[in-house]
Each structure stands twice: as structure tokens, then as C-alpha cells.
């Protein structure tokens, strides 16, 4: 299984707590690009609504899920359509070691 496929499978374990469906099925994550050789993944995330109360937690859970895949060295998560997108991206930087 390619790194990309592994990442998608792992993202299916991240659930929107309100809708109780995973972020892949809900299409909350999209534009996944993976540099298989260097283990760098980049993806976009948007919550169901721009003022989603759990948007930040979801962004963190998505990044952690990607980083937990063997072979992934870096995960760039771009947050869109979220009123706290900038703040969320600041938080996500803290997960880069």
C-alpha cells in the first residue's frame, strides 16, 4: 500500500464528533498530495461550518493521524473556511518536531 493510501486509511479513523462520520467520507479533507520518497504529505481541511466548535480539535487530530503513519516525516495541513483558521495553523506548527 502506498503512503498516500495508508494516510487515507488512517484519516478514516478521524471522526467528526457531531456527525459521527469520518473526515474522508464527509470530504472535510481534500487535495492530499504525498511526496512518497521524502515522506512529506500536504492536505487541506475545512470543518462542516465556518464556526464549527470542534474545528481546532479536528485539525489537530488530522495532523496527528497523518504523522502516525510509518514513513511520514512531515505533514502540512492547510485549514480553510474556518473563522479560526490562522490560529489553528499556529497550533498545528507545534506538532512539527
Amino acid at each position: 500500500m502506498s503512503l498516500k493510501e495508508q494516510i487515507i486509511e488512517k484519516l478514516k479513523t478521524v471522526y467528526d464528533p457531531e456527525l459521527r462520520e469520518d473526515v474522508v467520507k464527509l470530504k472535510l479533507v481534500y487535495d492530499l498530495n504525498v511526496d512518497e520518497e521524502n515522506g512529506i504529505a500536504s492536505i487541506k481541511f475545512r470543518p462542516t461550518v465556518e464556526n464549527c466548535p470542534v474545528g481546532l480539535q479536528l485539525a489537530i487530530a488530522i495532523k496527528k493521524a497523518i504523522l502516525s503513519v510509518d514513513g511520514v516525516k512531515r505533514a502540512n495541513v492547510k485549514v480553510e473556511n474556518f473563522i479560526w483558521a490562522k490560529e489553528a495553523e499556529e497550533f498545528l506548527k507545534a506538532l512539527d518536531n
Binding site: 457531531e18 456527525l19 462520520e21 464527509l26 470530504k27 462542516t48 461550518v49
Partner: peptide, 13 residues
């Protein structure tokens, strides 16, 4: 409320 969020999200997609 959650079901409303779901139908609106599906409509948006």
C-alpha cells in the same frame, strides 16, 4: 441540530 448540519453539508458538497 446534528442532522441539520449533515443535510446542509451534503447539499454543500
Amino acid at each position: 441540530g446534528n442532522l441539520v448540519t449533515m443535510v446542509k453539508h451534503r447539499a454543500k458538497l
